[in-house]
Design a protein around this nucleic acid. Sequence first.
DNA 1: TTGTCAAATCAAATTGTCTTGATTTGAGGA
DNA 2: TCCTCAAATCAAGACAATTTGATTTGACAA
Lengths: 106, 106
Amino acid sequence: MERDFFDEAKTFKAFCDEKRLRILALLLDGEKCVCALNEEMDLPQSTLSYHMKILCESGVVEGRQEGKWTHYSISVQGIGGAAETLKRYVPKGVIQLGDEGCCASL
Amino acid sequence: MERDFFDEAKTFKAFCDEKRLRILALLLDGEKCVCALNEEMDLPQSTLSYHMKILCESGVVEGRQEGKWTHYSISVQGIGGAAETLKRYVPKGVIQLGDEGCCASL
DNA sequence: TTGTCAAATCAAATTGTCTTGATTTGAGGA
DNA sequence: TCCTCAAATCAAGACAATTTGATTTGACAA
């Protein structure tokens, strides 16, 4: 089985930028609309939009349209997928909690 | 407590590049010296060296000097730290396995 | 339909990352 | 010491990501 390194890299694009991490941290409080993020991030609207797109494409953030507004929230599944991917970079044979299945979902 | 987003981003720099993921995948087999990686990656020596530096700075890879040779290996602790960081981006209140401590080390 | 507003997209400039040959460093061995 | 070799560093150019004002889109109200 060939790994899709391109896709895996894409997932982590979300986390390798300071501003995007800050946005994610704001979304920890729950779903927020762009205008709210805009105020808290102090960035031009287009810049924020750019980062939101990358966050969505990486799968860790989801957007929800409601009339004129777009609400963004963290995708728990998306983060879980990233964690799952990360785990695959731990060499086999390393004794580690969770290998028996208790953390299979993370 | 202020998060050090810069440092967190640095950690994930390791995983957001296709070539670095490929290098990590090669290191899953165990410690390897640069010359071995060089053959398998088919990259100029200086290019590989550049990526190894980023991998080390992100904390997920460790280098070990042995005479003229440098051996690199995956740092299980480093990957664990990254996973730990990732987990902090899961919103509170989301029901999830591992919250009771069984996966505290991951 | 026309206007308004939130948000996405565009395009051009800036900034940052990556690539690579050349050079340097540093550990042996002759 | 001097040479050789592995690997790091340097420096310049190529390439990719980011920034931003301007423009477009699409939803709703008048």
